[in-house]
């Protein structure tokens, strides 16, 4: 494997966003790119990352390899990179280590680190193609704000999408709270758009603790996409350049 990222910052942000949810995971490398899929310890949430080969320049992977990496170790090393550094990941065919090289484009500084790899026996889950009842795209910062505000009142949020809009509501010991967003197009600032595509109304309840955790990815993309269908996990997607993505799935809370 040899994969060169124009900005080390991208990988730093991705790992920073998921490191509290998953600790050890395999980075599956093949000629289409670098993928990661892992459940959190409680098996409530699933992280799915895809860094497409096109996100790297150049990208070369001659043989499929799984790099088992402890994310807190990876984060320690990524913190040694300047945000603007060029990052090159390298690994042999049957690697014991993954090699990270950081190059500054402005100075002649070159730093090099090896991280010991782990043997991780990870379950891989098949995620079915789903036609979601509601797909909401909104500013990532807005979603983060709503989750942070509501977790002050309750541990769960009900997300209800109707033709009127999308309503995030919660109730807790001190009282209730709700935030409603309607579809909204801002010609001057398209990054503030809220788009709600609905095939049928849907209402589901989720743990806010996980949603707040997913929102650590807000720095990766201006927009977040929420996809909901009755009684299936919520998909929270942050789209990256070159069709790469960071997706989180969260199992709902069901029944009374």
């Amino acid at each position: 494997l040899e994969a060169r990222l124009e900005q080390a910052n991208l990988l730093k942000k991705v790992v920073d966003a998921i490191k509290d949810l998953v600790q050890d995971c395999n980075f599956d490398c093949n000629d289409s790119g670098i993928a990661l899929q892992a459940m959190d310890n409680s098996h409530v949430a699933l992280v799915s990352m895809m860094l497409k080969a096109e996100s790297f320049s150049p990208f070369r992977c001659d043989r499929n390899i799984a790099l088992g990496i402890n994310l807190s170790s990876l984060m320690k090393v990524l913190r040694c990179a300047q945000n603007e550094d060029i990052l090159t990941l390298k690994a042999d065919d049957a690697p014991d280590v993954v090699n990270l090289v950081f190059e500054s484009s402005e100075s002649d500084r070159l730093s090099e680190y090896d991280i010991k790899l782990m043997d991780i026996d990870q379950e891989h889950l098949g995620i079915p193609e789903t036609e979601y009842s509601a797909t909401i795209s909104m500013p990532a910062a807005e979603f983060q704000r709503i989750c942070r505000d509501l977790i002050a009142l309750s541990e769960s949020v009900a997300i209800e999408a109707t033709k009127e809009g999308v309503k995030f509501s919660c109730s807790g010991d001190i009282g209730n709270g709700a935030v409603t967003l309607r579809s909204h197009t801002n010609v001057e600032k398209p990054e503030l758009n809220v788009d709600i595509a609905l095939s049928e109304p849907v209402a589901l309840t989720f743990s806010l603790k996980y949603l707040v955790n997913f929102c650590k990815a807000s720095g990766l993309s201006g927009t977040v996409k929420l996809c909901l269908s009755s009684e299936v996990p919520l998909l929270v997607e942050y789209t990256l350049a070159s069709n790469s993505y960071l997706r989180f799935y969260l199992a709902p809370k069901i029944g009374d």
Binding site: H43, H124, L125
Partner: peptide
């Protein structure tokens, strides 16, 4: 109260 579901209830092992 509502019960937290597990992700593996929805996505099967491959």
């Amino acid at each position: 109260a509502k019960k937290q579901q597990s992700i593996s209830t929805f996505f099967a092992k491959t």
